[in-house]
Design a protein around this nucleic acid. Structure first.
Lengths: 356, 356
DNA sequence: TTGAAAGCGCTACCAT
DNA sequence: ATGGTAGCGCTTTCAA
């Protein structure tokens, strides 16, 4: 039945493989079965180019019968573009990052793309990864960690591959950015802490902070300043030597016991959880002894043992916009960079409860 | 300089695109520059087929100069196999799952492959995803969630695509499995709880448990039985109606206040954390009022507020073996299924401290 | 509307 | 050791 008169030389390459391997169904098979040419099959499946409804049906049926599946490698090779979207992440173990990856995956799949995920550990990896993505002719790249080197980004631009950064410093030509509105977030935090009557403030951040972290810190300081706080005297910077929970805990442990800070703002949720636990180890508890607000409303912060007041980043919205940007720039590669700021909201929980 | 005498018709398709798009460098360009044929270029880059060291160098240099990058789509199309490995995950937000994904990504990248990640929400997605992976001619598939339908797995087998399951029930022909040694894990838990003198035991699991969860429960019961415990009377099954932390917490809250369980074993870390917090809400604390052991040594369980005694799954080892299986089956597609059991170890923390 | 044919970029066979 | 060449499976002109 499945004779292929026009492909006499077909089996030459795998003449040695045993007959148990069922040949994969190709567009030619569908064409033969439907009594049309491969070109028609292609059109029928891609709604691209004109075709009569009747033959269209015929082809679709034949494809169905044979269980035909497009070879994405061949399709991509021809179209110069695969249905792949590259995603660059780091430290997936961090709850916020895994939540963001989750959001991106959902959105990518919802749009019919496939995610190519790479976890990087340093800036060097980033360049290599970006290059690898271009070798797969991805339809776009989403960077959630690291700072894309201009040189490689240019290669992407050359290949017409859209690059969008999430929570990265928006300063690369032809690259779009989606950022949480750290400014407003810091304002909300300052406002809350002031309202509950805090006088002496703390800002906790990692030693090697991300751009987003720095921005939050600066905005926090500015907000306090604007409210008349003498930040030179009453805003204390604490630096976590390690990343994540443990860094936050250590920072609390090494705090000078004397200087009782009343309102602390943390660059992220992990630091905040660690800080809270560190304070507990010293016999201090929020909100009795101090108020605490973190960034990133991760599941952990909601748990009974923490109940941390945090700023929520709208991950679904961030992901949605990221995909929109990718698709949009694919159509207008030369348009100037656009940066979108996604609103954040303050979630009142135990460590700094709402006051009315 | 970069003339292509043999490709006169090359630009016909994109005659209309503006000249700003730099042509992508192909093997032909390298060949021309090195003064050899494309075949030689291919050999030089793949160390495949004989070639003189001299020309080899020449080609490599030319490739370097031009910034040549292999087109993976073309390569894969020809080789019938891409350098992609598909990974199927679910609920990445769960700390254990994101840790496992992290381990797999690292291992996949270490071996020079690229991960194609899909997050599924139900069994239906799995079939579709598996099919999509085959369309990309992946070199292998790793399933960390769901139960692969036999029909689709057969398609993979037809395409010579290795499939390996992690912590899944090892009952699919030609599919390999890597599983944590739940048996031993449950034994260790039972042993510990008995040693500290518990008499009345509890087993907490989700209503819709995974295979691994069921196995842990059965093994726990068997271990207690073997130690002479009357499990009909002294082993109580608790069922969490929801997944994760909240499910565990609710389970603790609805516990009959009267029946004070002394030693509780949880199917996973999330449930255990929730259960612990739920008990706290009722004024009970471990290890004073009860002992608690969870499965999966997630970062959260180590935090000061929890300090949960848990069974540690060796994620690095699981990932390592998974890749080995993929590669091995690629070479021997017809060999019988193999299942590897990875050892687990008991981490003593506060909720059931070590006794000597 | 349809089909023939020219590639997409690469690999591997075969002959030199 | 090298080069010519026939595909891999698909898309997209272009002519009929």
């Amino acid at each position: 039945m499945r004779s292929k008169p026009d492909k006499s030389g077909h089996g030459s390459k795998r003449i040695l493989t045993p007959p148990l391997r069922k040949q994969t169904v190709t567009a030619q098979d569908v064409a033969t079965r439907a009594g049309v040419s491969r070109a028609v099959v292609s059109r029928a499946l891609s709604n691209n180019g004109s075709i009569s409804p009747a033959t269209r049906e015929k082809v679709l049926k034949a494809a169905q019968d044979l269980g035909y599946q497009v070879n994405f490698l061949a399709q991509g090779l021809n179209r110069q573009r695969s249905h792949l979207i590259g995603v660059i992440v780091a430290r997936i173990g961090d709850p916020f990052r895994s939540a963001l990856l989750d959001g991106l995956l959902k959105e990518i799949q919802r749009r019919g793309y496939q995610a190519l995920v790479t976890e990087i550990t340093g800036e060097e990896d980033l360049a290599q990864t970006l290059r690898r993505f271009t070798q797969f002719r991805v339809s776009g790249v989403i960077v959630t960690s690291g700072k894309p080197p201009a040189a490689i980004v240019n290669e992407c631009v050359q290949h017409q591959i859209p690059v969008v950064g999430i929570n990265r410093q928006p300063d690369i030509p032809f690259v779009d950015f989606i950022c949480s509105d750290n400014q407003t977030g810091a304002d909300l935090a300052a406002e809350q802490l002031l309202r509950v009557g805090c006088r002496r403030f703390g800002w906790l951040n990692n030693r090697d902070s991300t751009w987003a972290g720095l921005m939050r810190g600066e905005a926090f300081q500015a907000a306090l300043c604007g409210a008349g706080v003498d930040t030179d005297r009453d805003l204390h910077h604490r630096v976590a030597e390690q990343e994540g929970y443990e860094g936050g805990r250590q920072a609390a442990l090494v705090s000078p016991p004397g200087d009782a800070l009343e309102g602390i703002f943390c660059a992220n949720a992990q630091l905040a959880c660690g800080f809270l636990d560190g304070m507990r180890q010293q016999g201090k508890e929020a909100p009795d002894d101090f108020h605490l607000i973190g960034f990133d409303n991760t599941p952990t912060t909601a748990q009974h043992s923490y109940q941390l007041t945090t700023l929520d980043q709208d991950i679904a919205e961030i992901s949605r916009l990221a995909l929109i940007r990718v698709l949009d720039r694919a159509m207008h590669p030369q348009q100037p960079s656009v940066t979108e700021w996604v609103k954040v909201s303050l979630i009142h929980r135990r460590t700094s409860p709402q006051i009315r």
